[in-house]
Design a protein around this nucleic acid. Structure first.
Lengths: 196, 196
DNA sequence: CCTACCGATCGGTAGG
DNA sequence: CCTACCGATCGGTAGG
């Protein structure tokens, strides 16, 4: 499986951002120093500033690339002409795949977006809200058409969305199952839980 | 509903730990300074050291109190004589309630245990693993008895466990639904997803 | 419980 | 890309 979030290009700036994402994911944004990022790339910390302008800028790049990817993917699926339940399935599969393939960036966007400096923090919060509202609207529609059991659509969305974060534990503890089976198992549990 | 994790006593040390947990949850362990914790309690930072010995000690207290609570609760339910599916339900409800009632401590234990100093970090990792193994064993038993659909029991556990973390979003975004309905909706979705 | 202060580390700049 | 270094902030100690 290929990465979902596009690698814009292979500039030095991109490479620094990827190295930063890996370290932010392992140790947390606040606990990762510019010196550690530099060391991972084999240079001294001040050299990084020839390519990036601040630590915060890298966090912004990571978060918004993930956020944009989610939103544009949702819009694409919404218009793809497939059946209602198939749309929900495709969206869930997209979440799982991004957790598997773009784990570092996804993890950082999910856990460290609160450290975004202020105009961006609020903007990212709005993006998340917008995404959940779209998803919740789709589920509410399915409930009206009796394709989904009657639940509070907001609760259903937050449950499904965080269920998928279970892939975290899969990454960390041995990967005793292959990625495709992992996806099938999660999809089976969630779709069965939702479907009427 | 009452808090699940016991308030051991109301010593000054306990109060400091609770204030710390609230700030760790809001801003993260690494991003919270001893000066901020002191300010929340109306004293100067060095005064805290008359009651606690280090910042890490507070994190340890938080994580292991949560961990112990999960483990002892699981053992209690396992022996309560109820039907298999009822046990799974009770365990899920316990998770949801701890997310609702002891949110600060639970959140910190879940997100910041990686900052535990080293003998404790590994020990906590083992506790988590032991808990998941117990839960996964219970589900595997249910699958053998055809009470649960055939899934990889490890994947089922990590999906259920992280689904419950969706209560996060509930805390943060308005609480438009009451706690009891929140619990019923999550339980309905997950049990339906599992039950055969 | 306080003031005064420590050594370490941080993000980032100057200048080449 | 480097060395040298800045001001700020950190967890924690000394001493009262």
């Amino acid at each position: 499986m290929a990465k979902i979030i596009p690698t814009l290009n292979s500039t030095r700036k991109e490479k620094i951002t990827y190295a930063a994402a890996a370290l932010f994911r392992q140790n947390g944004y606040r606990a990762t120093s510019m010196r550690e990022i530099a060391e991972a790339l084999g240079v001294e910390a001040p050299s990084l500033y020839n390519h990036i302008s601040s630590k915060q800028e890298m966090l912004e790049a990571i978060c918004f690339r993930v956020g944009d990817s989610f939103l544009s993917n949702f819009d694409r699926i919404e218009k793809d002409g497939s059946s209602f339940i198939k749309k929900v399935e495709t969206i869930i599969r997209f979440h799982i795949r991004i957790m598997i393939e773009d784990y570092d960036m996804m993890y950082v966007a999910e856990h460290d977006w609160r450290y975004l400096p202020e105009p961006h923090h609020e903007e990212f919060g709005r993006m998340r809200k917008r995404y959940r509202a779209k998803f919740s609207g789709l589920l509410a529609e399915g409930m009206k058409g009796k394709k989904i059991i009657p639940l509070d659509p907001n609760v259903a969305v937050l449950t499904v969305l965080s269920a998928v974060n279970g892939v975290d534990s899969w990454h960390r503890s041995g990967k005793k199952i292959d990625a495709a089976s992992l996806e099938e198992n999660i999809v089976a549990l969630l779709l069965r839980g939702l479907a009427s």
